[in-house]
Simulated assay, not measured.
Amino acid sequence: MGATPWSTTAAPTASAVPKELVHLSFDAYVLVTGYTQVDDSTFTLTAKWPPGTGRAVPGLGTRYESLVVAQTIRQVGLVLAHAAFGAPSNHATLLRTFDFALDTTSQPTGSKPDDLFIVVSCKTNNHRTNRRLTGLRLDMDIRSGGRSIGTGATDFEWIAPAVYRRLRGDHAQAVHEQPPLPTPVPAVRVGRAADSEVVLAATTEPHRWQLRNDFSNKILYDHAVDHVPGLVLIEAAHQAARLVTSPGAFLPHSVTTTFDRYVEFDSPCWIEAEVDTKGPTTTVVTVTGHQNGRPVFRTELTGRPHHAI
């Protein structure tokens, strides 16, 4: 499978959360370990980040990996949707927004798992009650060692199978065959260790890439799906941001993403990035995706250049 953003060689930690609840095939990738309901709209969850959840940043040591933060937020949403709010296991998820912020000074503990305590405020949504679509807005405070190290927020719905099939049309079936893989950009340029982790391929135009979907990367493609997962698009935004800023010099502390439509496997998805330097201490990278001439997602990453940290 190649290298991954967090360790897969250590034995998985014990979890009371079954992998099926968070739509995963491998126990080792389940990060959420339990949840407790505080009141009608508030929950607390526990999670563990296994050793190896960081990446080396020149001059700053090891910092938490954004992908494991995003995976944690994803799993929190699924646990609460299914276990606390009764979303049926056979319903599909429609992701609308996905935001998180991270304390870029925080460092992984090293050889031991990091224990997390996550406080979640929930608001139920019924975007289209005539079609029985039900959803949640979640706002999260992620804490480790008694202090807040990040926040998360997401807005999503779950959709009955029949409705989902009508919505997806010819694209409703999971794709098992590997799509064509264009040549990846060098892994080291996007902070990754193997080609299987690279989700961008170079084009002849500056600040523009083709999305690549390598099914051998089980962090991003745990199981067969009918569309490109949202975490793949968020990862593409992070990799694009690294490519348009000085290598290793940009640490985003805030990431906001809006999804416009599903991204399919049967036509190219083009990723573009723009950099806006807002003074000596703040850089904003805006990454957009387009497929078949239509926008599919937009991510804004805000951070500080290396020299400003």
Rank of each mutant, 00 (worst) to 15 (best):
M140P: 07
A308I: 00
I234T: 11
E205R: 13
A236F: 06
G110H: 03
R74K: 09
R212T: 06
D222E: 05
I234R: 08
L21M: 10
P113W: 08
L133S: 14
R208Y: 02
V30W: 05
I118D: 08
A153N: 09
G293Y: 01
P280I: 00
H306Q: 15
D222S: 07
I142L: 13
D276K: 09
A83E: 12
E264S: 09
V57H: 09
G289K: 04
A101V: 02
D226E: 10
A10D: 14
N217G: 05
G169N: 08
W6S: 09
L136R: 02
R143N: 15
L301I: 07
R208T: 13
V244L: 05
G152A: 08
T129G: 14
R165I: 00
D139K: 14
G248I: 01
F259E: 01
G191K: 02
I234L: 14
G279I: 00
F43T: 00
F117H: 15
S144K: 14
P295V: 03
K19R: 15
D222C: 07
A174C: 13
E205T: 11
V175Y: 08
T257G: 06
L80D: 05
R208N: 03
T256K: 09
V185N: 01
A83F: 00
P161C: 01
S15Q: 07
N292D: 15
R165Y: 00
W270H: 14
A70R: 07
A87W: 02
P280C: 01
F265A: 08
R137C: 12
G2C: 04
V285Q: 04
V190K: 02
F26Q: 15
T124N: 10
A162Q: 13
W158K: 03
I73D: 12
A92L: 12
T204V: 08
N90K: 11
W6L: 10
T203Y: 03
P12K: 09
P88G: 04
Y221E: 05
R166M: 09
F100P: 08
R132Q: 13
A194D: 14
E300P: 06
W6Y: 12
P88W: 00
R131K: 10
P247S: 10
V76F: 03
A187V: 01
N217K: 04
L133T: 12
N125H: 11
V188T: 11
P50C: 04
L211K: 06
T44F: 01
S89R: 15
F156N: 02
G230F: 01
R55L: 11
P179Y: 04
N90Y: 04
K123N: 13
T151D: 11
R168E: 00
S267N: 10
